[in-house]
């Protein structure tokens, strides 16, 4: 199912990653994920590729970006600048854009370089299709929903079956997508945030209490947990910090390794998942955004 045939399938889903958001056909899943890179594949093979990054100083024209992509070896694939179709122009109104196509043996692609004057980000989007065929109407719909910056102070991450709204002060540091376990790690000065997702919960729990499993899944979550309600789900939380009384407080000041740790885990029974958050660092509470982060972090 390429972009040419995707609209027939009907369902669309949100895909958002590190500042970029778009709607894609529900049958397209990420095949490769990088910090500023996504390769989405349909059941028939690779369907769409995105890569993006901030402009260094002044935002160059999209045609300049395209010129940089041209291979120096003339025998290799040549990227041809093309004018945007009316549908793509309408979809990308407000952006500076340059369309392109390339064809190489049995593969071809149509794409566009998008430069956003508001957030000064350059994005390359390309749709793969057989040589001679176009990108199809789905591509225009995907580009219509394309956003490279948001209006709020949070960054949306929606990939596979997880969705989170992470405060913009955190920068994506690493990601892991393995069968049964997803992990998104973020950082900011003196603080580290990790979002976890485990599944299937019925197999992991198998009658064991959530507290026992939580201590095993979240190393460092010692002590007695407190009961929490996250959205409609029951969960547990652990909070630890350096001692704040007497000589132990001064001991903590003299030893910068002392950290504040917050762990939360909850059972999304309707989705058969366990969701978790770890927050570690030297910044003391309160963290007013933590509640909103937990509420918005879900399995979809």
């Amino acid at each position: 199912m390429s972009a040419a045939t995707a609209t027939a399938a009907g369902r669309w889903c949100e895909t958002a990653w590190n500042g970029v958001r778009l709607q894609v056909p529900a049958g397209w899943h990420p095949r490769e994920v990088g910090r500023r890179y996504l390769l989405l594949a349909s059941p028939a093979g690779p369907a769409m590729e995105l890569r993006w990054g901030p402009a260094a100083r002044t935002l160059p024209a999209p045609a300049d970006y395209l010129r940089r992509l041209q291979p120096r070896n003339a025998s290799r694939r040549i990227i041809r600048p093309t004018p945007l179709s009316a549908a793509w122009q309408e979809a990308l109104a407000g952006f500076a854009c340059q369309g392109f196509t390339w064809s190489d043996g049995g593969q071809a692609a149509s794409g566009v370089v998008i430069c956003c004057p508001a957030c000064r980000k350059a994005t390359l989007v390309q749709f793969f299709h057989p040589p001679g065929a176009g990108a199809g109407p789905a591509a225009a719909r995907i580009l219509t929903a394309f956003r490279d910056h948001g209006a709020t102070q949070t960054v949306v991450y929606a990939l596979f079956d997880i969705r989170a709204e992470v405060p913009a002060m955190f920068e994506l540091a690493a990601q892991r997508f393995e069968s049964g376990y997803f992990e998104l790690a973020f950082r900011r000065p003196r603080q580290r945030l990790v979002l976890h997702r485990w599944g299937p919960a019925q197999v992991l729990l198998q009658g064991a209490p959530l507290a026992t499993l939580g201590r095993r899944l979240l190393p460092g979550s010692d002590g007695r947990p407190e009961d929490l309600v996250v959205g409609a789900h029951r969960g547990l939380g652990w909070s630890q910090g350096p001692p704040d009384r007497g000589w132990q407080r001064w001991w903590g000041v003299l030893h910068p390794g002392e950290r504040f740790r917050h762990y939360r885990i909850w059972h999304a029974a309707d989705r058969n998942r366990l969701m978790g958050i770890s927050l570690e660092g030297r910044l003391p509470p309160p963290h007013p955004w933590l509640e909103a982060l937990c509420e918005a972090y879900e399995s979809i």
Binding site: P30, G180, P200
Partner: peptide, 15 residues
Amino acid sequence: KFQLHPREAEVSVTR
């Protein structure tokens, strides 16, 4: 049966 994401189920079963 386990409410897995299609891609996650595919990789688990094929492995």
